[in-house]
Design a protein around this nucleic acid. Structure first.
Lengths: 190, 190
DNA sequence: TCAACTGTACCGTCCAGCCGGTATAGTTAA
DNA sequence: TTAACTATACCGGCTGGACGGTACAGTTGA
């Protein structure tokens, strides 16, 4: 069979990025087990040899994915800080699955962490710390900041269930607004 | 080698229960990947053939584990309702990992759910619904109940990180009390 | 020429599930 | 009462498939 022609106008980022995208997608959709090297290569329309050309082992693939997640989370921390409606509003609203690149990367990282990968656990822990400190700066109270982070964490795990129609309520725009109002009561009276 | 003599006074629960315990333990400690049939059998001091005698497939083992989790969660819902310090206090304090049988079973179920097992996701979803409705009965406001459940969910995922010294703060008795006080502010003014 | 692949063929390991045995307690029937 | 049979509870070896990784020769566009 003739090898696929190289598309000069990169179809959707570099092959390397497509491989990382495919890896994340498989992790999100099918869990750790389904994200095999063969599956990743196939999903990225690359041969297995091609995958191993870019990432010499599965460990390297994981590290590449985690590095991209870390970079994305760093950008996001800046977005939270600069959000027009305030950091808390932004954090809560982006805690439900939005389909953003960060979102997908974060879920992918969680799958690895649940699979007890220490590198993934480390990165996820660091990201949470960063978010927490942004919220602490915004609300000026460590306990309140921690409670808000917990709600954010809760939303994350929950929207994973919701996507599969297993949670009773969907998190609509309106219910999110009510939640944010409720969180306002946690703030040391403004 | 002589087969192990049947112990009339069951040594530590039935072999069946020991297998389920071992399965949960492996799931909690090493994630889905490490909970192989061989590993489960070895951890329960049973041969693989012995395991397969009690649970004819890995699927049957999962279902057995999930059934026990469901039963444990049912008991717990009654405990929450009848807690002396109130349902909210009880729910929050038992949301950090306590090492109880329910706790272990719940984490084990989460591992399977993250591995995208639909049966596990279903059971976990049901349990959350049950808890939520208990809290709703206690606080008489769906939004507040949802927020409290989110904090509970957040504590759960977080204490998993904390166990591996990756989260900055440990959830001490004292910090839990402060959190519960904070949650008090969410209640429609008492 | 060279980087970026493709395709094919392996290798060792791991794992789920299968199967033929084995030991023992209990039941049946002559 | 005792031989024959059955059910329960297990043992451990085996098979086939998937997976991670290696090796390498060939192809293609810049």
């Amino acid at each position: 069979m003739a090898p696929m022609l190289r598309n000069p106008a990169a179809p959707s980022g570099s092959t390397r990025d497509r491989l990382l995208d495919a890896f994340e997608e498989l992790l999100v959709e099918g869990g750790e087990r389904s994200a095999t090297l063969d599956a990743v290569a196939a999903a990225a329309a690359v041969s297995k040899g091609g995958l191993l050309y870019h990432f010499s082992s599965k460990g390297a693939l994981i590290e590449g994915m985690l590095a991209r997640l870390d970079a994305l989370a760093n950008e996001d921390a800046d977005n939270i800080r600069a959000a027009p409606a305030g950091p808390v509003d932004y954090l809560i609203r982006t805690s439900v699955h939005t389909g953003s690149p960060l979102d997908r990367a974060y879920i992918a990282g969680s799958r690895l962490a649940q699979g007890r990968d220490p590198r993934a656990m480390q990165v996820l822990g660091d990201i949470r710390c960063r978010w927490l400190s942004v919220i602490e700066d915004a609300v000026h109270d460590p306990d309140t900041a921690e409670a808000i982070m917990l709600i954010s964490d809760g939303l994350y795990v929950n929207s994973s269930l919701a996507e599969h129609e297993l949670a009773p309520q969907e998190h609509t725009d309106e219910s999110m607004s009510r939640l944010i109002t409720l969180i306002g009561r946690l703030l040391p009276h403004t």
